[in-house]
Computed example of a mutant assay.
Amino acid sequence: MTKSAIVKIRISNADKVRLERFADEAGKSVSEIVRSAINETTRGQVAGQQRRENIAKLRRSTNLMLEAFAGKPIDIPKLRDIAAQVRKDAIRALA
């Protein structure tokens, strides 16, 4: 899809700075951030909802890993499964 249309909006300087900083920290352009927000909003989602859900899943799987390390003796096969889940959740959260 060719991206050739331009939309102009007015926002405060403070919001512009926040948007640019967020885009920079995310390693994306401001346009990518705005397009992502539009896509999520038009699908009926709150902008950033999927990212927050992915981070929550990562937090839960990491907590399971910590619990597995606390067990004595450590259940290695269970720990392997949990580590694989942490890896999947991290990839989703960092994408």
Rank of each mutant, 00 (worst) to 15 (best):
Val17Ser: 14
Asp89Leu: 05
Met1His: 15
Gly44Ala: 03
Lys16Leu: 08
Ala95Asn: 15
Lys88Thr: 11
Arg35Met: 01
Arg35Val: 04
Glu20Gly: 01
Val86Phe: 00
Lys78Asp: 09
Glu67Ser: 09
Phe22Gln: 11
Met1Arg: 13
Gln50Asn: 06
Gly27Thr: 00
Ile9His: 04
Ala90Trp: 01
Lys16Glu: 07
Arg92Asp: 04
Val46Gln: 11
Glu67Asp: 13
Ala90Met: 09
Arg21Lys: 11
Leu58Cys: 01
Gln50Ala: 12
Ala47Trp: 04
Phe22Asn: 09
Ala83Leu: 12
Ala84Tyr: 02
Leu64Gln: 10
Ser61Asp: 05
Asp15Arg: 00
Arg35Tyr: 02
Ser36Phe: 10
Arg35Asp: 06
Arg43Asn: 14
Asn13Pro: 14
Met1Cys: 13
Glu53Cys: 07
Ala14Phe: 03
Val86Asp: 02
Ile33Phe: 02
Glu20Trp: 10
Val17Gln: 03
Lys72Leu: 03
Gln49Met: 14
Ala84Pro: 02
Gln50Val: 08
Ala26Lys: 15
Leu94Met: 12
Phe69Ile: 14
Val34Glu: 02
Arg92His: 12
Pro77Ile: 01
Thr62Tyr: 06
Arg59Met: 08
Ile76Glu: 05
Ala26Ser: 15
Gly27Glu: 00
Thr2Pro: 12
Leu19His: 04
Ser29Ile: 11
Ser4Gln: 12
Val17Trp: 06
Ser31Lys: 03
Glu40Phe: 12
Ile74Asn: 04
Pro77Cys: 00
Arg92Val: 04
Ile55Ser: 05
Arg59Ser: 15
Gln45Leu: 12
Asn13Met: 07
Ala84Glu: 05
Asp81Phe: 04
Ile33Ala: 12
Met65Glu: 08
Glu67Ile: 03
Glu40Lys: 07
Glu32Asp: 07
Arg87Thr: 15
Lys8Ala: 04
Thr41Met: 15
Pro77Asp: 01
Ser31Thr: 05
Thr42Tyr: 15
Glu32Ile: 07
Val46Cys: 13
Arg18Cys: 07
Met1Glu: 13
Arg51Asn: 10
Ala95Thr: 12
Pro73Tyr: 02
Arg18His: 09
Arg21Ile: 15
Ala70Gln: 05
Arg80Ser: 08
Thr42Ala: 07
Ile6Leu: 11
Gln45Tyr: 10
Val7Met: 15
Asp81Ser: 14
Thr62His: 11
Arg52Tyr: 14
Glu53Thr: 13
Ile55Pro: 03
Asn63Tyr: 10
Arg92Tyr: 13
Arg87Trp: 14
Ser36Pro: 01
Lys78Thr: 03
Ile38Phe: 03
Gln50Arg: 13
Gln85Cys: 14
Ala83Gln: 02
Lys28Cys: 01
Arg35Lys: 08
Arg80Ile: 05
Ser4Tyr: 08
Lys57Arg: 14
Ile76Trp: 04
Glu67Phe: 09
Val30Trp: 07
Ser29Asp: 03
Ala93Ser: 05
Arg92Gly: 09
Ala5Val: 09
Arg18Val: 09
Ala70Met: 06
Ile91Pro: 05
Arg59His: 08
Asn39Asp: 13
Pro77Arg: 05
Gln49Ala: 15
Arg52Gly: 10
Lys88Tyr: 11
Gln49Asp: 06
Leu19Gly: 02
Lys3Ser: 10
Arg80Glu: 11
Ile11Met: 09
Glu53Met: 11
Ile55Met: 00
Ala84Met: 08
Ala93Asn: 01
Ala68Gln: 02
Gln50Lys: 08
Thr62Pro: 12
Lys72Pro: 06
Glu32Val: 07
Met65Gly: 15
Lys28Asp: 09
Phe22Leu: 06
Leu66Arg: 09
Ala5Arg: 10
Asn63Pro: 12
